[in-house]
Design a protein around this nucleic acid. Structure first.
Lengths: 114, 114
DNA sequence: ACATTACATACCTATATGGGAATATGTCAA
DNA sequence: TTGACATATTCCCATATAGGTATGTAATGT
């Protein structure tokens, strides 16, 4: 089989750097498409397609205002990604602690325990 | 251009469900490839290829033990993903609070302020 | 109605898979 | 050395893009 559809879930949606860039850009305020086009430096149809993907997985919300469409990030849809990585947080904290301990024992060496 | 290489960064690596499954499986203990094959239900070459991707982005570590290769999750490599989603955490917390407030005001309606 | 603006969508192409089959590589055991 | 076992790699194909070009569509101004 080929690669899974990027439209299927937030993990795939945020795998694309441009889409992460868009989500960051839309995190603070709502913006229309032309502003996003300027911000990411792609042409308009490409941006619209990225917005389509983000829309389908619920990562952005749209509101019409006359001819403009105002997009904004729907951060809640990122929670599954955050939660999944969170389950590994304890592991890397342990790991970093071990690294830190090793560094400290280098600075202030203890004799090897018999 | 085509889709970005999945080997390029942790975001792409964890976009694949099978790889997330593998990372979860390898989070607790180290396991050899045949155990992973059983766990995810793919054939061995496919698993080896997924492990190759995870290796290249540093999401797993390998240790040889005779004919076996023992893999384990390197959780620290997930930190960039966690950190990025973390920057949106404040936003979805606000959002959830608004939802909660609305729910509460439904349960105990207040008269509209003049 | 007509032109213009702001987007979305359709279509096209190069590319990067994901998975399976076959094969190569590496390691141990007798 | 020979064989068996554990993995990795190569080759193949179907598929899903990402981005660009061309086009469709909705809303506004005159």
């Amino acid at each position: 089989m080929a690669r899974a559809a990027t439209t299927s879930d937030p993990f795939n949606a945020v795998a694309e750097p441009r889409r992460r860039q868009i989500l960051t850009f839309l995190a603070a305020d709502e913006r229309d498409v032309s502003e996003i086009v300027v911000a990411v430096g792609l042409d308009q149809p490409s941006v619209s397609k990225h917005l389509g993907v983000l829309r389908r997985v619920g990562l952005v919300r749209v509101r019409r205002n006359g001819r403009h469409r105002l997009y904004r990030t729907n951060a809640a849809a990122l929670k599954p990604v955050h939660d999944w990585t969170e389950t590994f947080e304890r592991l890397w904290r342990h790991q970093l602690e071990r690294v830190k301990e090793r560094a400290e024992s280098q600075m202030n060496p203890k004799p090897p325990s018999q």
